[in-house]
Design a protein around this nucleic acid. Structure first.
Length: 699
DNA sequence: GAGCACTGC
């Protein structure tokens, strides 16, 4: 295959804002950590590029209610801005500065760093709050890092978030569901608390969107009336040269392999990060790379290909951080996990296929669709930036520059990724908003309002679960409690119904186990996969996946809580099930507080399965003679997901309920339990009746 | 007979 032709933009590259940003920072050289080692913490802090903007930032926070801060990763905004505010007195009179993060690791690691810089014991002056871990003091903590979901939850206790003087929403451009909910809430709170200050940290690309959303000076003729402002910070990134393919390629996986070998043969030493879309694709590409390595002369420079994706066992994930053997180039083939969640130092080259796997809820079919779609320009810029963390780098985009949305108004590439709230089932979020007293959710000031069809679907769901009444008001105590427990509405209903079926012990376990992913370890392909499957059979329940999860948890509780070896032998993911144990404990506390007695069903699986039907009833399907299923709700053809124990079985009653459907190549049901047709009518008469000998869904 | 990107309470 001839080498692929890349186009190298000149100094004045058209298009991508990334190119412009890199140019602007071309003269800015970061200070090596080693060189700084002798400096005091204060001196180190003053050397950060952001320090030059300290006074301006503080002035803006005084003058404007909302400050939108734009700066690349590594410029120190998450660690420094809360400290500047603390030093400037924003934490006096028992006030707290909050800084939210979209991920748990970010909240804990940034808090740890800042505690060191401030000279505080973690949990004292500087603390963090994430689920299951509260290292903060209600009286002494002045700077509090937390996940956005946690701050959202705090609004249930304190609707005005009155203890906070400044709330900084970090990584807002990622537009996670709780980030968007917080944006709306904070905007609402500001009307009642004019003294509250909000800082939004975002990427350059959407800063204007945030400004427009927050600025109440709508006509904009007199800028002096603005109450929101954008502040640009210099980053500490190195320049990244971006190259494009001259022509579109037919197969990006093939192009990725070719590009990796071109880099390997022609470019100076440095590790490579390749962005692809999924596990299967990554395993295949690595196989191709390994095959081609065989044909290379033995004297050729060495190359070490490594996979990276979320379901990779932890010990294999660790390998990407190890330095490669001498004279070997490390090449990491990764999913989107390396875009923001996992940071690898020493990457000099990025290869970007330009695609991402994205989950989108279809309200018409009530299914999640998982599709490979062009990534946004914002994503592409973030990916490219991964090449410039420790030295100047180079990014190879496996598409022509002509498809960029900045060049082509009809580009398939969006400028930003659609926010999570507009492509999810929002019933949980609407329920939580109602719990905050926002009854008319359609009037809530979403930065990007979810499509009305999604709203209607979600409200219908909540009504048939009895969480809201026919006027859309939260029911008491059912709806109120459902909003409070950290579960999706269906499972919340099941848990709260469990006392009626006398099976709380078991439902607690099932709710916890369905809340974590990848309970069972499945190795890729061949005999290993069969082995994992065989091990799982030990826990297999004929009644389906929920009872299988229950069996696995009970075995773990008896033998595996402290025994990683036992878990490995039984192909159980130790971390996942340990987390399920924490979740179970937390859920139990909620039931205790609601004074819902928790008893065991003593092996009576019928009670247990009926209880599951009391929440899952709308997700019912009947098996057809050809082995596929037809959904009771929409009459859609469904398939059993290969990870289900029902993949190799047939339901004795002909009926199943399921947790969710994901559409990939087909529509797959996940987490199934065998049920009786009669139970559907018995437990959800408002949803189903018998007509002419068959089950009919009410319209 | 065939497979899930990633977060969060």
């Amino acid at each position: 295959m001839p080498p692929l032709q890349f186009w190298k933009p000149g100094a004045a590259a058209p298009g991508s804002s990334l190119d412009r940003e890199s140019e602007a920072e071309g003269s800015l050289l970061p200070v090596a950590a080693a060189k700084n080692a002798h400096l005091s913490i204060d001196a180190q802090r003053q050397r950060l590029p952001i320090y030059k903007h300290r006074e301006k930032l503080l002035w803006c926070v005084e003058k404007y209610k909302v400050v939108i801060v734009v700066g690349q990763t590594g410029c120190g905004k998450s660690t420094q801005i809360p400290q500047y505010l603390h030093e400037a007195g924003w934490t006096s009179q028992n006030h707290v500065v909050a800084c939210t993060q979209p991920r748990r690791v970010a909240a804990t690691s940034v808090a740890t760093r800042v505690a060191e810089e401030v000279g505080s014991v973690l949990g004292d002056e500087v603390g963090y709050t994430i689920r299951f871990e509260d290292l903060s003091s209600p009286t002494r903590t002045k700077i509090k890092y937390m996940t956005d979901g946690m701050l959202f939850r705090e609004t249930m206790m304190d609707p005005l978030l009155s203890k906070y003087s400044v709330i900084m929403i970090d990584e807002a451009h990622e537009r996670g569901a709780y980030t968007d909910l917080l944006l709306g809430l904070v905007k609402k709170i500001m009307r009642k608390r004019p003294e509250l200050r909000v800082i939004i940290s975002s990427a350059t690309i959407d800063a204007e969107d945030f400004l427009e959303y927050f600025n109440t000076n709508a006509d904009g003729t007199d800028r002096a009336q603005d109450d929101a402002v954008i502040v640009s910070l210099e980053g500490r990134m190195f320049p990244v040269e971006v190259c494009y393919l001259k022509e579109p390629c037919a197969d990006y996986a093939e192009a990725a392999v070719q590009t990796v070998f071109d880099i390997h043969m022609k470019e100076p030493p440095g590790d490579v990060l390749v962005f692809l879309t999924g596990r299967e694709e990554i395993d295949q590409v690595i196989q191709q790379v390994s095959d081609r390595l065989q044909s290379l002369p033995s004297a050729a420079p060495k190359l070490l290909p490594l996979p990276l994706y979320a379901t990779l066992p932890p010990e294999e994930q660790e390998l990407i951080f190890d330095p490669p053997p001498r004279d070997t180039r490390k090449v990491i083939f990764s999913t989107n996990i390396a875009e923001a969640s996992v940071t690898i130092d020493g990457i000099k080259y990025v290869v970007d296929c330009g695609f991402v796997k994205l989950k989108t809820f279809n309200p018409r079919t009530c299914m999640d669709v998982l599709t490979i779609t062009p990534c946004s320009l914002a994503s592409a810029n973030q990916r490219a930036g991964r090449a410039g963390r420790t030295s100047a780098g180079k990014c190879f985009r496996l598409y022509p520059s002509s498809i960029l949305p900045t060049h082509n108004p009809r580009s398939p590439m969006p400028i930003t990724t659609p926010p999570e709230l507009v492509r999810s089932d929002i019933s949980l979020y609407l329920l939580q908003l109602k719990a905050l007293g926002i009854d008319n959710v359609a009037k809530f000031d979403f930065m990007s309002p979810p499509p009305s069809e999604m709203m209607i679907r979600a409200l219908e769901f909540l009504y048939c679960l009895k969480a809201i009444d026919d006027e859309g008001r939260l029911t008491r105590p059912m709806g109120e409690r459902m909003a409070e427990v950290p579960l999706d509405p269906m499972m919340a209903a099941i848990l709260l119904n469990s006392h009626a079926f006398r099976c709380g012990e078991e439902i607690l376990t099932i709710a916890a186990m369905t809340s974590v992913q990848n309970v069972f370890i499945t190795a890729e392909g061949g005999t290993k996969a069969t082995m994992a499957e065989l091990e799982r059979r030990k826990f297999t329940a004929e009644e389906g996946d929920h009872l299988t999860l229950l069996n696995a948890y009970n075995a773990f509780a008896r033998y595996g809580t402290k025994d990683k070896q036992w878990c490995g032998n039984h192909r159980i993911n130790f971390k996942a099930v340990s987390r399920a144990a924490s979740i179970r404990k937390q859920l139990k506390k909620y039931l205790d507080r609601f004074e819902i007695p928790v008893v065991s069903c003593e092996g009576d699986a019928v009670r247990l399965r009926k209880c599951l039907v009391s929440g899952y009833f709308k997700n019912a399907a009947r098996m057809l003679p050809d082995g596929t299923y037809r959904s009771a709700r929409e009459g859609a053809i469904l398939h059993v997901h290969p990870s289900s124990v029902m993949f190799t079985r047939q339901p004795s009653t002909g009926w199943v309920i399921y947790h969710e459907v994901i559409e990939t190549t087909k529509s797959f049901m996940r987490d199934l339990t065998v049920v009786d047709e009669d139970w559907l009518v018995e437990l959800a008469p408002h949803f189903y009746t018998f007509k002419g000998g068959g089950l009919k869904k009410h319209l």
